[in-house]
Computed example of a mutant assay.
Amino acid sequence: MKVLITGGAGFIGSRLALRLVECGHEVTVLDNLLPQVHGDRPEESEGYRAVAAKTNFVRGSVTDRDLLQRALTGQDAVVHLAAETGTGQSMYEIERYNAVNIGGTALLLDILANGEHAVKRVVVASSRSIYGEGRYRAPDGTFVYPEHRAEADMKAGDFEVKHPGIDGPLELVSTDEESKIHPSSVYGITKQVQEQLVMTVCPSIGVEGVAFRYQNVFGPGQSLSNPYTGILSIFSNLMMQGKPINIFEDGEESRDFVFVDDVVEATVLGIEHPAAANEVFNVGTGDPVTVMTVAQTLSRLLEADVPIEVSGNFRLGDIRHNYADMAKIERLLGFTPAYDFERGIARLAAWAKASGPQASSYEESLAEMRRKGLMK
């Protein structure tokens, strides 16, 4: 097939592009090479260099109608990865996140709805962030979906989720695709709208839509300098610089960390597998890992003797827990992740050691959030 990947020089996109080329597909990459992701010399970035010689590379934005229309010419499938990412940043760069994430997706679909094309399937990168807090079981056995945590509770050091009318403790369980969608950040809202646009418009114009709700993706090649990327690369970079690690909340907050190679394999199935048509899938491991475990494991693997401090700081818009129920993607597509957390983080640490520390504006990004009242 001929496949267009928007955001195809990024962390996930560049690896997906190379995997599709291996599978015999002809790949076009559209990417604006954003300096926040690719650095001040984006043509030297790992993602760009990986795809430049093996794909048809087009530099530009998904908000550019003429450019996007040309890139879509002759394509059989589209993987729409291009998006502004970062939960914290989204809470104050609201217009930009909406313009790119929602506007770019709307433009893509508008072109497909109003012109001739060969596209048969659109795969969109959704996110676990659309769920907000994960799914919990109440003492009476019913499932509940807690709303945002109260700032007053977190200031008092109480970071656990609450649900109206329930006094007893809530049991964290996996979040399946039928769980309540209630994002707690602007980023999560934009991912929800991206997914809903694709899954609503595509069937109406004779195109198959597929949405993947990626959990926290990590692995070699994830930017060490981007302060809004995942905590594994942020922590790795800080440790290699000998800087202390500030653990937010109490360190017991957890996420489902999924290795990038597994995300790529799931996405290939989303492009090729007939059973993926018009379906929404979680992509994770099904296992929650605490932030404290992340920090301790990286410290051991990187042999980094740095302080790991639990500060009690917190960011508005962050959730407490979320991990994926993987039953649907295994049942319909036969997908199970090849990497557990230990194996994946070992690969990340080895790559980080070889790459060395990178200049980052992480501290500045936290200071910006404090100035705007989003970090306490």
Rank of each mutant, 00 (worst) to 15 (best):
A338W: 00
T336W: 03
A349T: 01
T297A: 09
H321S: 14
T297E: 12
F314S: 07
Y362I: 08
R300G: 00
K328S: 02
T290D: 05
A350V: 04
E330A: 14
A324H: 07
V306A: 08
S360I: 01
F341K: 04
S311R: 12
Q296K: 12
E303A: 13
S361W: 05
I308D: 04
I329Q: 10
D340E: 04
I329F: 08
W351V: 03
D305F: 01
T293P: 00
A350W: 00
P337H: 11
F341N: 01
I329G: 08
D325I: 06
R347C: 11
I345T: 09
V294F: 06
M292W: 03
G317A: 11
N322L: 15
T336A: 15
Y339D: 02
G356L: 12
P357R: 07
Y362E: 12
F314G: 07
T290A: 08
S360Q: 04
N313D: 15
I345Q: 06
L348A: 09
S299P: 05
L333W: 06
A304C: 04
L332S: 07
I319A: 08
R347K: 15
Y323G: 09
V294G: 01
Y323I: 11
R300A: 08
E330R: 13
N313Q: 13
M326W: 08
S311A: 07
L301E: 10
F314D: 05
I308E: 01
E342M: 13
E303T: 05
P357K: 09
A359Y: 03
A346K: 14
E303R: 11
A295R: 03
R331G: 04
T293D: 06
R331A: 14
I345V: 15
F314E: 07
W351P: 07
A327L: 06
V306N: 07
A349V: 02
Q296T: 03
S360F: 02
E330L: 04
D325L: 06
L333T: 07
M326H: 10
K328F: 04
Y339P: 02
E309N: 14
A324K: 08
T293G: 00
D318E: 15
K353P: 00
T336N: 11
S311T: 15
I319G: 12
D340Y: 08
V294I: 14
H321F: 15
I308R: 02
W351I: 05
V291Q: 09
S299M: 03
D305G: 02
R315Y: 13
D305C: 02
A349D: 02
A350K: 12
V310N: 09
K353H: 05
W351R: 07
R315F: 14
D305N: 13
R347W: 03
A359R: 12
I308K: 01
L301F: 05
A354P: 01
Y323E: 10
L332Y: 11
G334R: 12
V310S: 01
Q296I: 00
S360A: 13
S361M: 06
S311P: 05
R315Q: 14
A352K: 01
R331K: 15
G334D: 13
G356S: 12
A346G: 10
L332E: 08
A354L: 10
E309G: 00
G312I: 06
L333C: 11
L302Q: 03
A324S: 15
V306D: 03
R347E: 15
F335N: 06
S361Q: 11
Y362D: 03
I308C: 09
